[in-house]
C-alpha cells in the first residue's frame, strides 16, 4: 500500500465508539437511544465509588446502512475496558429485543470488550447471557446480527462466546477474539503456559488473521472504518438461519479441527499444516498480500455463497 492510501484510512482501532458508528452508518442517519442526556449510569460502580459514564460504556441507536434501516451498538473501549455490567448489558439486550419489534434489516454490534465487568460480577455474567438469548430470538426471526471486532480490547470472555453465536464476524487483523484472555491464561498456568506480554504470540493465537484462517471470522478487513462498512453492507441482507443442517456442518468442522490440529502447539504449526507457503511470514503480510496467499487454503462453510 502506498502512503496516499494509508493517509486516506479512517482507523477503526483508534476511533471512539461514536466515531465508529458515524463512520459505519450513512451520513447523518444515526439516532442514539438512551443517550448520555438520560443519565442512566451504573448503580454498582457508584456504590463502589468508581467513576461512572453517562452511557455506561456502550452507545446504542438506529440508523441507515446503505439506505437500509439497522440497529447498532458500539462498546466504548476507554470505559472499564468495554466490560459488560448490568446497565451496559441491558442496553444491548434491549436493542436486540427492539429489533424484533421495529422490523430492521440487521443489527450491527461493534464489540470491544474484556467480557464481564468484574466490579458487577454476577450481574455482568447474566447480562451477557441475556444478550445471547435476545440475539437468538432475533436470529430466529431472520434478522442477521453482524459482529465487528477491531478495537483495543479485542473481544473476550462471555462476549467472545456470544460473538460466535451471531450470524457473521467481521474482524481486522488488529482485532482479537477468544474466551480466556492472555492475562487469565498466564495467571492460571504460569508464564510458561502463556506469556501475556509477548504481543506477537497474543496476535498469532487470538488475532484476526488466525481466526480468519480457522474459519472463525467470516471476513478479514483492513483497519479502516470504511472497509468494515463495505463488508457490512454486503452481509446485512444475508441471514444465516440456525438449522440442524448448519449446526451439523459446524459440528463436523470443529471435530475435524480437533483431529487435524489438536497436537499443534502454536499458530505457526497450524498454518504450516494447512499448507500455506511462507506461513511464517503471515504475521508481517499486509491485508492484500495475506488474502492473495491464503485464499486457496480457507475452510469453506456451506451457508455463505462465494462472492
Amino acid at each position: 500500500m502506498n502512503l496516499a492510501d494509508w493517509r486516506k484510512r479512517d482507523s477503526f482501532y483508534e476511533a471512539s465508539a461514536r466515531r465508529r458508528i458515524l463512520g459505519l452508518l450513512d451520513q447523518n442517519s444515526f439516532q442514539e437511544l438512551l443517550g448520555p442526556a438520560e443519565r442512566i449510569t451504573s448503580p454498582h460502580l457508584e456504590q463502589l465509588g468508581f467513576p461512572v459514564s453517562f452511557d455506561d460504556g456502550v452507545v446504542i441507536g438506529s440508523g441507515l446502512l446503505n439506505g437500509k434501516k439497522v440497529l447498532i451498538a458500539a462498546q466504548e473501549s476507554g470505559f472499564m475496558g468495554g466490560a459488560v455490567g448490568e446497565v451496559h448489558g441491558a442496553k444491548i439486550t434491549g436493542l436486540l429485543q427492539l429489533a424484533l419489534i421495529s422490523h430492521v434489516t440487521a443489527v450491527l454490534l461493534v464489540l470491544d470488550t474484556g467480557g464481564v465487568r468484574l466490579h458487577e460480577a454476577n450481574a455482568g455474567l447474566v447480562a451477557i447471557s441475556e444478550i445471547l438469548h435476545a440475539a437468538f430470538r432475533a436470529r430466529e426471526a431472520g434478522i442477521p446480527i453482524l459482529v465487528l471486532i477491531g478495537g483495543n480490547n479485542g473481544c473476550y470472555g462471555g462476549m467472545g462466546i456470544f460473538a460466535r453465536c451471531c450470524d457473521y464476524i467481521i474482524m481486522s487483523e488488529e482485532g482479537r477474539l477468544s474466551v480466556a484472555g492472555p492475562e487469565v491464561i498466564e495467571t492460571a498456568g504460569g508464564v510458561e503456559e502463556f506469556d501475556s506480554r509477548d504481543r506477537a504470540l497474543v496476535w498469532r493465537t487470538m488475532g484476526g488473521k488466525h481466526r480468519y484462517l480457522l474459519g472463525e471470522a467470516d471476513r478479514l478487513v483492513v483497519d479502516d472504518i470504511k472497509a468494515f462498512r463495505e463488508v457490512a453492507i454486503e452481509l446485512i441482507q444475508k441471514p444465516k438461519p440456525l438449522t440442524l443442517e448448519s449446526i451439523l456442518q459446524e459440528h463436523q468442522r470443529l471435530g475435524e479441527r480437533l483431529v487435524a490440529y489438536g497436537e499443534c502447539k502454536d499458530a505457526l504449526d497450524i498454518w504450516k499444516k494447512i499448507g500455506i507457503p511462507e506461513f511464517d511470514a503471515i504475521p508481517l503480510m499486509d491485508n492484500d498480500a495475506f488474502h492473495s496467499i491464503v485464499k486457496p487454503y480457507l475452510p469453506r462453510e456451506g451457508t455463505e455463497e462465494e462472492t
Binding site: 477474539l177 474466551v179 498456568g189 480457522l214 479441527r257 490440529y261
Partner: peptide, 21 residues
C-alpha cells in the same frame, strides 16, 4: 472454561458457542 494456550489456539470460544447453539 479451561484456561490453556491450546484451547484458545483452537478457539475454545467457538466450541462453547457451538454448544450454546
Amino acid at each position: 472454561q479451561r484456561l490453556t494456550h491450546r484451547d484458545e489456539l483452537l478457539a475454545n470460544h467457538a466450541y462453547l458457542a457451538h454448544l450454546a447453539k
